[in-house]
């Protein structure tokens, strides 16, 4: 039995929404980053579902690009979080509030 396209789209939509809610509500920088990764993976699922449904390779190639970029972003992001921890001894985004106006 073939799983219809809508099921994939609903699943990825829900995953994306969980990611968004996580970014908005969580306070730990690393968990926020994990939620962003969840959003990106929801997008990957959408792309692959469309790619398979349309019979077009474009979406799968796009997914590879997204995965590569996400890896690069992870390296940079974790480095930034470590640099922040070294100066501030915290990764809680509520404590990161020097800049206000």
């Amino acid at each position: 039995m073939e799983v219809p396209l809508n099921h994939y789209l609903i699943l990825s939509g829900v995953l994306f929404a969980i990611g968004v809610v996580g970014v908005v509500t969580r306070r730990n920088a690393i968990i926020i980053y994990m939620c962003i990764e969840l959003m990106l993976n929801a997008v990957n699922l959408t792309l692959i579902a469309f790619s398979s449904y349309l019979g077009d390779m474009g979406g799968q190639i796009f997914t590879f690009m997204v995965m590569t970029v996400a890896a690069a972003e992870a390296a940079v992001g974790l480095a930034i979080i470590i640099a922040l921890f070294r100066t501030r001894r915290t990764v809680d985004v509520d404590d990161v509030n020097l800049l206000k106006g």
Binding site: V23, A29, I32, Y33, I36, V76, G77, I80, I81, A83, L84, T87, R88, V93, V96, N97, L98, L99
Partner: peptide, 10 residues
Amino acid sequence: SNEAALKYFL
């Protein structure tokens, strides 16, 4: 600068 980078990144 750290704070700017973190906010921009997230």
